[in-house]
Simulated scan of single mutants.
Amino acid sequence: MALKDLSLSLQFARFREVARHRAALPRHRVARWIRHALAADGEITVRIVDAEEGQQLNREFRGKDYATNVLTFDYAQSPVVMADLVLCAPVVAREAKEQRKTLAAHYAHLLVHGTLHAQGWDHETGAAEAEAMEAREIEILAGLGIKNPY
């Protein structure tokens, strides 16, 4: 399977442990993880934020007053996938530790997850959709050499 083209913007907000997160997210890896999840060419911005910005965005756009691991803002799914993926570094780090995963492996999972959302996949519409999305994530991550995140 030929990988799709990707125009990637990778951004890091300023926060205390940004160096640790930059080290876990070299541009070539982020691009590889996203490209494996794309069914069409993509233009995607990935922004790594602190808890304050993550909470503000989640509150403003989802009506939930807490920082979450990944937010997907999709603008187009065809012919090019256009989206912003916002990942909250402290939440991702905490979850990786709790789940006994490396920070990079958890970021890979969340980037694949967010990229699928940007293409219309949704795990909140029903059990069958959730199972299908999880199965697709597991398949993509296995192809990247990353263990089943569930």
Rank of each mutant, 00 (worst) to 15 (best):
L3K: 11
L3F: 04
D5Y: 08
D5A: 08
D5K: 10
L6P: 07
L10C: 07
R14C: 09
F15S: 12
R16V: 11
E17Q: 10
R20I: 10
H21M: 04
R22V: 00
A23L: 14
A24D: 08
R29I: 01
A31I: 04
A31N: 00
R32F: 05
I34G: 03
R35H: 05
H36R: 12
L38F: 12
L38P: 10
A39F: 01
A40P: 05
G42T: 04
E43Q: 13
V46L: 03
V46R: 00
I48C: 05
D50L: 02
G54V: 00
Q55W: 06
Q56W: 07
Q56M: 06
N58T: 11
E60G: 05
D65T: 07
L71C: 05
L71E: 11
L71G: 03
T72D: 13
D74P: 09
Y75E: 15
P79W: 10
M82L: 14
M82T: 15
M82F: 13
A83E: 07
D84W: 06
L87M: 12
V92Q: 00
A93V: 09
A93R: 10
A93Q: 14
K101V: 05
L103H: 06
L111G: 02
A118I: 04
Q119L: 00
A127F: 08
E131M: 09
M133R: 13
E134Q: 14
E137C: 13
A142F: 06
G143S: 09
K147A: 15
Y150E: 14
Y150H: 15
